[in-house]
Design a binder for these strands. Sequence first.
DNA 1: ATGGGTGGTTCCCTTTTTGTAACCGACATT
DNA 2: AATGTCGGTTACAAAAAGGGAACCACCCAT
Lengths: 125, 125
Amino acid sequence: MDGSDCPDCSRINEVLSRIGDRWSMLIVISLDYAEVMRFNELKRHLGISQRMLSLTLRDLERDGLVRRTYYPTIPPKVEYALTPLGKSFCAPVRAMGEWALKNLPNIDAARAKFDAEAARTVEPV
Amino acid sequence: MDGSDCPDCSRINEVLSRIGDRWSMLIVISLDYAEVMRFNELKRHLGISQRMLSLTLRDLERDGLVRRTYYPTIPPKVEYALTPLGKSFCAPVRAMGEWALKNLPNIDAARAKFDAEAARTVEPV
DNA sequence: ATGGGTGGTTCCCTTTTTGTAACCGACATT
DNA sequence: AATGTCGGTTACAAAAAGGGAACCACCCAT
């Protein structure tokens, strides 16, 4: 079984296992911000390896979030942009980003506190 | 570099690498729905392995999203519930869940179309 | 003729993640 | 007496993710 009971869980599970990885989200965010970007532009912007970028972009295109436009010039030029579906995905991703912005300090504080207490119970001296 | 240029990227990168994994989100959603759940209850509900569940729950507790209450009875009883921080995280997660629910068919359609076209260009017969 | 940029693909290797199985103590059930 | 439950931890193994470098064709600038 995998998320068998709760139907929402299996759905969310599905979508997260497709486009819920780090690079996909970061690419979507970048494209949302820049409207259109070229391959090496994305690569330099994100610090992603060439291999991961091409793999992730192909998956995003396959899933209908990204539109790839190839110009057979010399040297070749390829532009990536969000489809309407990709743009609609930005809303929840941005919501999560804003939550992150606001709550990362809280997480850090909780983590520091947890670690401090754990250290005390292990080493009471 | 890693998401160096765009400040949002590095933040989202951070938060995603902490609580952006599949199990964390599913646990948060489950706890939001049920208010409080026990260890094996979560395990059965999500179909997660015992090891991953204990690891993920400890991280969630460490990050202040989940509160763990231990009752030293025999057999032991442990309850997990969301903290206020965890509850606030539900909003963006739910937004993503709702998007998933609505757009999974679109993704599937795009994927099928992409695969069909790829098959045609490879095997034109 | 050498090197660089374009957008990739392919191979190899390491690291990370995840699952499986066994074990724990102490009791309750069969 | 053996087995099951509860909430885990640990060791091992399999799978997946990811990085790095090499290679491709083609042209341009030096």
